[in-house]
């Protein structure tokens, strides 16, 4: 399988503090990869550099064999990356339908029929079909998270970066979320930044662990589960239960 996303020596420091340090990261096409790590491990900084919200201090990012380090966030999205926000960031005063349509229209342009079909499909898959007419801010928190994912879907990305997608979801919602991601994984590569270890263990094919801005370990869920260094890192900071 070819590599869709890779970084070499990717680093970022804030006023001398190293948030991410010399990270080499490879993500093969079609994989569900989870990125985990204790609080403050540099996950958010790392992901922000991937999507282009934060420029790296040094190092390279390539997407689909192309160096994208200097491209802006919109340029990277147009190449096929999609990103869902950790803190829900939808167009809160617009309807759910319009939120998804905005995502679809960038790709489909003025073809109204195609946009309409794409929106209907994305709402259907996320279980929001009946709620297209509702204003986004009136949706429940869980539905807003699903709307974020529907917006990601409508972009038909080749890489989808989900930043803490299950944060704040109820147990019942998490089950259907897992099914949705498995379904999604048939057509796109997924990078999942996640705190909830049950979700990570159930979904990820491989896991990358960040700690103090560096890659601590990488492997299958079983390997990571058994890795003493990972356990120590989490225990050391009192983080999530592995």
């Amino acid at each position: 399988m070819s590599t869709i996303l890779s970084t070499r020596g990717l680093s970022r420091s804030f006023a001398g503090l190293r948030a991410v340090h010399e990270v080499d990261f490879d993500l093969p096409q079609g994989e569900i990869r989870a990125l985990i790590g204790p609080n403050g491990a540099g996950k958010t900084t790392f992901v922000s550099m991937l999507i282009g919200r934060l420029p790296p201090s040094s190092g390279q990012i390539s997407f689909d064999g192309r160096d994208v380090t200097r491209l802006s966030a919109p340029e990277r999205v147009r190449l096929g990356m999609a990103y869902t926000f950790q803190i829900t960031s939808v167009f809160s005063r617009l309807s759910a339908h319009e939120n998804v349509a905005l995502a679809a229209r960038r790709r489909l342009g003025t073809d109204a029929a195609a946009v309409e079909a794409e929106v209907a499909g994305a709402l259907e898959r996320t279980g929001l079909s009946g709620r297209g007419g509702e204003v986004a801010e009136d949706l429940s928190y869980g539905h807003q998270r699903l709307l974020e994912i529907a917006m990601g879907l409508a972009q038909r990305p080749r890489l989808m970066i989900l930043d803490e997608p299950t944060q704040g979801l109820a147990e019942s919602e998490i089950e259907s979320f897992k099914a949705l991601i498995r379904d999604l994984a048939r057509e796109t590569t997924i990078l999942l930044i996640e705190h909830n270890m049950a979700v990570v263990m159930a979904l990820a094919q491989r896991i990358t662990v960040l700690n103090f801005g560096e890659v601590l370990a990488e492997g299958t869920p079983e390997e990571i589960h058994a890795n003493p260094e990972v356990q120590a890192a989490y225990l050391g900071t009192g983080g999530a239960d592995v």
Binding site: R53, P74, V90, R93, E98, L102, T110, M151
Partner: peptide, 25 residues
């Protein structure tokens, strides 16, 4: 009612999100 007019509204509502949908805001 045009797509570009709709994106103007999207920029007004949440420019950061519009950028991450791939729009050159």
């Amino acid at each position: 009612r045009r797509p570009s007019g709709r994106v103007f509204v999207a920029i007004r509502e949440n420019e950061d999100r519009a950028r991450l949908l791939g729009y050159d805001t």
